[in-house]
Amino acid sequence: MSETAYPSTWRRPPRLVKHRGWRWGLWFGVLLYLVLAAGSVEVDIARVLSGLERGQRFVSGFLQPDFVTRWSDIRQGLIESLTMTLTATVIGILISVPIGIGAARNLTPAPVYLLCRAIIAVSRALQEIIIAIFLVAMFGFGPFAGFLTLSFATIGFLAKLLADDIEEIDARQAEAIRATGASWWQFIDYAVRPQVMPRLIGLSLYRLDINFRESSVIGIVGAGGIGATLNTAIDRYDYDSAGAILLLIIAIVLVSEYASGMLRKYLQ
């Protein structure tokens, strides 16, 4: 068998951009962007170096957290965070169910559909933190503004996923129920609810997790909760307490993630 007749080199065919010039141009463009972007970052070496010592203190604070000194503040922050997480999730679910049903194209007339979709779009487009800024300005500092923020954010999240879910229900089952002469309410109860309920429960538990995580942030702009405590601790360079708070947040997220996983498995 003579092997000399076969080519002795092989190049993998390009996967994305077939034209050689465009390929090089693309690489050049990416490189140029990276250089420009990196150039726009002004690094004050002296400041960073002086910060390294503080960084070290933060790491040691994380490793040897101090739960005791500010315990009453931490406790208050945690209670606010947990209570506003739960109440906001419950209220959020209660409001997002009708809005979700209203935003499902296969159930509602066009005007209602458009209105509900608009509410969802507004809620999703705005960051929690920006909503919190406005609500704090309107309702004053404290967990009540945080509660409203989280409820509002929950609506955008749950109502959208619920509406998408309803739009994807099995049409044959729905048709069968409709064929029995069921009214609109009976139709929701017998055709829609059984199909979307498991996922609604799963999503609600997931949103509970997210709300807790968010509740640790919105305190930074004055909406109460553990975020406010954390903000104060960091402002005072009290890294031992900050480390303790962060560890508590991580632990609660872990526990709630585990618990919601178990609960979801049990409920389904």
């Binding site: 004050d44 400041r47 960073v48 910060g51 390294l52 503080r54 960084g55 933060f58 933190i129 995580r213 968010e214 640790s216 942030v217 930074i220 975020g227 954390l230 903000n231 960091i234 402002d235 360079y237 900050a242 962060l246 947040i249 991580i250 997220v253 872990l254």
Partner: peptide, 17 residues
Amino acid sequence: RSINSLIWALLLVAIIG
């Protein structure tokens, strides 16, 4: 994952300016 990027930023601003 548990710590929001805003909190990371809060810490880093304190540490590296």
